[in-house]
Design a protein around this nucleic acid. Structure first.
Lengths: 173, 173
DNA sequence: TATTGTTATACTCTATAACTATA
DNA sequence: TATAGTTATAGAGTATAACAATA
């Protein structure tokens, strides 16, 4: 939390005067890890939308991740899925609504708990998941294909380490 | 784009049957780099909102980044800022509207280009930026404080490498 | 024709609050 | 009282299309 000041005050290339240089000066923004993280996050989401454009799961990653969690945990409740994906209960309602409307998921009445639903994939949902699994893996491979295997492993390791310290609830990965 | 299959088929801990285990099975989602990236991204954004809650720049990172880019490139046009931050022109309009309404930024008429505005910070904007700079740096430090210096440097290096290959336009970092 | 700023539209995501029915 | 699902609302982010003024 302290004693870390090995930041470069580079600011080399683009010292703009009238503000209309090709690549503007980002100031201390370029020194923030979170800035680079966020900028890449934009590209990652864009690549996702592009890869899944011709798919019923197009538009945000919520549908795919929900479908996968339900597929691997038949009978889950909405709240469980929401917690797993770090989403809100109310957000999950709309996601399940959407997936149910497309007949990919069913809300079964839960046997023990009359408050909850037991979510399950339909045959159509299972079939679709089989199809998009290839797209998802290729999308992920392609996006990070620039990295060496060592860099990729290191990135995953660092991401998991960060998640362990920032996710209060489900830090069991 | 090929020849990379060192994925572990771990799936150790939580093999749920009724779907109501503490931590559900994420299936192949847990094998995607993008999944871990996205999950951490949620926490990063949450941490930002928390850090800037008592600030005129609360609610999204767009206001802060815009303020910084304008501060470091006095006289930039809206489109330039939009391109730099990888945003849409129409999105930038609302951001500048918001910052202008709070008297942090002014839209000066551009001397040469009558189509464009020359954006500049007001004294109030400069003053605010001075204040929030500390918050921004502390927010970034704190979030990644779990990492060693070497891990942090490696993370930044990998992020920049990925950005270089995925940002078509402004890859000059 | 191309570009800048703008407006309108639409959908995702996130967050909050309040309601219902169960427990 | 606590929880699961729901509904409503709100703002941020992203994307597209179209328009007027200007180049």
């Amino acid at each position: 939390m302290s004693g870390r000041s090995n930041r470069k005050k580079a600011k080399d290339a683009s010292a703009s005067v009238d503000g209309e240089t090709a690549s503007p000066d980002f100031g201390f923004l370029a020194e923030l890890v979170s800035f680079h993280f966020r900028m890449l996050s934009i590209e990652l989401n864009r690549a996702y939308d592009h890869s899944f454009a011709d798919t019923p799961l197009a538009g945000g990653t919520g549908k795919l991740s929900t479908l996968i969690v339900v597929a691997n945990n038949p009978g889950v409740s909405q709240t469980s899925v929401a917690k797993a994906l770090d989403k809100d209960r109310s957000a999950m309602v709309k996601l399940v609504d959407h997936l149910e409307a497309k007949e990919l998921i069913v809300r079964h009445p839960s046997p023990k708990e009359r408050r909850t639903y037991a979510l399950q994939l339909t045959d159509k949902g299972r079939s679709l998941l089989d199809q998009v699994t290839n797209i998802a893996c290729r999308y992920d491979e392609d996006f990070f294909s620039v990295l060496t295997d060592e860099e990729r492993d290191e990135l995953v390791r660092i991401l998991k380490k960060l998640r362990r310290h920032h996710e209060p609830g489900t830090a069991g990965l």
